[in-house]
Nucleic acid binder design. Structure first.
Length: 509
RNA sequence: GCGCCUGUAGCUCAGCGGAAGAGCAACGGCCUUCUAAGCCGUGGGUCGGAGGUUCGAAUCCUCCCAGGCGCACCA
């Protein structure tokens, strides 16, 4: 573990002292010390020793390690330890030294990763449902970058399928003063598009990009289905396809998919390539561009395609481990307690732009990433704006702004020794320990592809900070140098957390 | 029928092998001091149910119940 993570370094030092791997965790109850380890409980079976006895030995070995003030055996064999103020202040100094980069990962192998997200068909404006894809996917992308990887974001859109034809037909119908076809698009935006003679698709795409920019999801590249389909002949031979009922099939069931899939329709069904054909080309196109890993961000209604992508990778001769499909559950809207279904075709949707107008960009991003991807999001449209006033995002931002206020009033930095003459107060120790959790928290959120861990952690940081702020004066205090460092480190960690979920860190509120 | 996901405080949700949490809602306190968008306190839970694994299970395994989403030559 890098020296940039003081807790990891301490754990390594203790492991050396004890001669066994020591993992440290922060106990929920402060009476159980600054950190605790269950090493004795884990080791007892293989050492054929009682956990308590082993804990005694471990505690004795750790007692002399630098930074350890005292140890204690507790419960069935936990070892609780208390650290010296000097250790905590040194750790704080290490955080301050890293600045905004505290917690940056140092991966064993730096990967080049593509994250493909949103990819909604440009048949209408971005909805709140599609926004969850962006909020989730973009935060995962930011986490991967923070973990030390090189990330590119791509938007893939279907510009050649049935839905696009229906979309264009709907606009055409409006231009003729008619109702769009029954299975066409009926939203008010279709009428707006009909008012001009331009091709509605590029206009829709521009609007999509504008909306997502406002949502702080920015793309490096855009992939078009129509272009990919043109290269189908290159890849069909690599797939061991076969013909049945006049259609061309991929033998995906041999590679773990539930069924074989049609790539090219039979003549009586039009004979064109299916979207799955484009999937094949697109997947190859991703890996051809020398991405080590291609991440798909898909709504849970697409979970059936998970096996399909893995099968495609294998059929093409690629390692399926290079393909990663991230799923998130859907967004449900309620209005006055009534369930509303989101259908772009019926126009019964909440558009992201309206949602952002209503609750603000910060609350919108926070709201959509705050829940785990496996959790269905329920949004009561009527209460959204009202609730946004109480969104915890402001609690976190407020901590950042409060610190900015202190720093505005601070005089030029002096190079005093940080260690205060008085013992550290509980609020100071708690805040330092909280900040020290950040590298592990970020790493875990990245590995689990669970960005919701970041806002949850940020709330705890803000919580510890507000408590500290309430109890202790920074400027003009005897411990000013130390507290300024503490407050700076806190601000950096909060700003980083907010950035990881695409939320701004205001200087004033 | 098969597959994926979910069931934790009144509500919305974290936690996913180590000693049950947050926000909102309810009630009661705290501003001559760096931002009260803040702080402190009170009440509130058989972690859907039943078995199992483990020194230890909300967390892992099995079954059951309830809900969401899928199972196209649509995307």
């Amino acid at each position: 573990m890098p020296a940039a993570d003081p807790v990891a370094r301490l754990a390594a030092e203790l492991s050396d002292a004890v001669g066994a791997p020591i993992e440290l965790e922060r106990p929920g109850d402060p009476a159980h010390g600054d950190y605790a380890t269950n090493a004795a409980l884990r080791l007892a079976p293989e050492r054929r020793q009682s956990p308590r006895e082993l804990a005694e030995e471990i505690a004795a070995s750790m007692a002399s390690a630098p930074g350890v003030e005292r140890t204690e055996i507790a419960g069935p064999g936990f070892v609780n330890l208390w650290l010296t103020d000097a250790w905590l202040v040194d750790a704080l100094a290490a955080i301050v030294e890293r600045g905004r980069d505290f917690g940056v990962g140092e991966p064993a192998r730096r990967e080049r990763i593509q994250v493909e997200m949103v990819s909604a068909n440009p048949t209408g404006p971005i909805t709140v449902a599609a926004a969850r894809n962006g909020a989730y996917g973009d935060s995962v992308a930011r986490l991967l970058e923070f973990a030390g990887h090189q990330v590119e974001r791509e938007y893939y859109y279907n510009d050649s399928g049935t839905q696009m034809e229906k979309f264009r037909a709907s606009v055409e119908a409006r231009r003729r003063g008619e109702e769009p076809p029954e299975d066409g698009y009926h939203g008010a935006y279709v009428e707006e598009l009909a008012a001009s003679d331009e091709d509605p698709v590029p206009r829709m795409l521009e609007q999509v990009e504008r909306t997502l920019d406002r949502f702080r999801v920015h793309f490096d590249s855009w992939a078009l289905q129509s272009e990919l389909e043109g290269r189908l002949d290159e890849f069909l031979p690599r797939l061991d396809t076969y013909e049945k009922d006049g259609a061309i099939w991929a033998p995906s069931s041999k590679y773990g998919d539930d069924d074989d899939r049609v790539l090219v329709r039979s003549p009586e069904r039009g004979g064109g390539p299916t979207y799955r054909a484009a999937d094949v080309v697109y997947l190859a196109h991703k890996l051809e561009r020398s991405f080590d890993r291609a991440v798909y961000v898909l709504g849970a209604d697409h979970h059936g395609t998970r096996r399909w992508y893995a099968a495609v990778a294998q059929m093409l001769g690629y390692d399926p481990a290079r393909i990663e499909v991230l799923l998130y559950q859907l967004v449900h809207l309620t209005s006055g307690g009534e369930q509303r279904t989101m259908s772009k075709r019926r126009g019964d949707v909440v558009f992201l732009d309206d949602f952002m107008d209503e609750v603000g960009v910060d609350a919108a991003r926070w709201y959509l990433v705050n829940r785990g991807p496996d959790q269905t999001i329920e949004i009561d449209v009527d209460l959204a704006a009202e609730r946004s006033q109480k969104n915890p995002v402001y609690y976190v931002q407020y901590a950042h702004a409060r610190i900015a206020g202190i720093l505005r009033n601070a005089s030029a930095e002096q190079n005093d020794d940080l260690l205060p003459s008085e013992p550290l107060a509980p609020e100071e120790r708690d805040l330092i320990k909280r900040l020290l959790e950040f590298p592990a928290t970020a790493a875990e959120a990245t590995e689990r592809r669970g960005p919701q861990g970041i806002p949850v952690y940020a709330i705890r940081v803000a919580d510890d900070f507000h408590r500290f702020y309430h109890e202790h004066r920074v400027l003009g205090s005897n411990a000013e140098a130390f507290r300024l460092a503490l407050v700076r480190a806190t601000q950096n960690v909060i700003a980083r957390c907010l950035d990881l979920v695409g939320v701004e860190a205001p200087e004033r509120m």
